[in-house]
Nucleic acid binder design. Structure first.
Lengths: 228, 228
DNA sequence: AAAACTCAAACTGTCGACAGTTTACATCAT
DNA sequence: ATGATGTAAACTGTCGACAGTTTGAGTTTT
């Protein structure tokens, strides 16, 4: 396994939670690849911990859908089929649409200003051809949307879906054109929110994810799976 | 703790999964009440199992939001605030609306027939004043909706939300009037699906859950918290 | 009588070990 | 060479034990 620094004992939180966070990090960054087996003993030795906390952490990650456990056969980083990835994206779209509708119904001036600011930052990233920066601020924009919507449960579900979507082997490397398209949709969303048009905001939020899915499929050359 | 039969060792599945299922059952049936502490040692002794599998099972239930773990202080059956219960119901409504829209866009004759059949069964239960039967078939109706929608992820999220909603201490004991209202909404949903009107189906599905929430609030005498 | 303190019992977090299963390799047969 | 077979190593599932923390009863102090 990989060279991560061992975890030190902290009395205010359990080793399990630390292991869980660390393994989650390894998965989300791709250091542990989808389909890869996670060896309990090696992982425990790596983190200078016994197998107990490791097993508990893996059980948690299993429920979070980041790993799959096969009885007597070990735990594997979950692999996402294209179909599963699309389902996840559809659910993200649903939640995003919901959040947009809620914001259209009630949002503060500061919230709208913050969203506008993020859109401008993304525009700057596109102009600079800085895809990683775009990616980062895009995440922040969607986080803000879900945050401001005021439904904690919705945000948690959304966050879980985003984590899960990282299991997709295909890294979403956007072209400049795709980024521009995406950010234009962000503007449509914000406009609808500003107008207080909940139905339009919802539609724009859902469309945005559908558009993201299309851009994703185009990027991996599976345009034929476009939603019909 | 309670008098459940001990779990026997089966080699094809782990004790952890059996313990998890059993504790989940205890929680969903209310034998373990929200707020109640779950003693690892007692539970392990009850089920004739060591603490390892019990701890792993509880870790899974924590991620499923059925229990909460406090470091060094044990695991408690989760308590739901009214606000949290409403958030859950809102998410159920969102998913239900989604499923209805999908079904309006594409469903088979058998599926529509099955839904119609469930509605008639519920009508019979109402006529007979059989609230438990209504409750059961209502669950089946909503299960079928999510099943037929064809998005496995959506169904899993929905199922998780339903389980979580059982944490609400207020048991939803419906009056005959509430049941009749609820079933009338079922008919509206099915009509929209039959007409292939996705927007109407979605609206009907969401309204149905909102209506359920109103009936719920009426029942517990908190009408003032009606969504505004 | 109420609050602060003391100490033992109870409990959680963690560990190392054992049993049973799976996996991988070496050997043998074809 | 290829496939089947047997065996040892590796790994998972489970258990019992120990250490540190929390809880609660009993005692002392104000």
């Amino acid at each position: 396994m990989l060279d991560t620094p061992p975890i030190d004992i902290v009395r205010t939180q359990s080793l399990t939670s630390l292991v869980q966070r660390e393994v989650e990090r390894l998965i989300l960054t791709g250091e542990l690849a989808p389909g890869e087996r996670i060896n309990e003993q090696h992982l425990a030795a790596r983190l200078r911990v016994s197998r107990g906390p490791v097993r508990e952490a893996l059980r948690g990650l299993e429920k979070a859908r980041l790993v799959e456990a096969k009885v007597n056969r070990g735990v594997y980083v979950r692999e996402l089929s294209v179909e599963q990835a699309l389902e996840i994206s559809e659910m993200r779209g649903l939640l995003t649409g919901y959040a947009c509708a809620r914001l259209a119904a009630s949002s503060t001036a500061e919230q709208r200003a913050r969203l506008a600011q993020l859109i401008e930052t993304m525009a700057a990233a596109i102009a600079a051809g800085d895809a990683p920066a775009y990616y980062e601020h895009n995440l922040a924009f969607h986080d803000a949307l879900m945050d401001y919507a005021g439904n904690a449960r919705a945000k948690e579900m959304y966050d879980a879906l985003v984590k899960e979507s990282h299991l997709s082997r295909r890294k979403s490397l956007f072209s400049a054109r795709a980024m521009a398209e995406s950010n234009a949709e962000h503007r449509v969303i914000l406009d609808a929110i500003r107008k207080g048009d909940a139905a339009a905001a919802r539609e724009a939020g859902e469309r945005h994810i559908v558009g993201g899915r299309r851009r994703f499929l185009d990027a991996i050359g599976m345009a034929e799976m476009r939603p019909g």
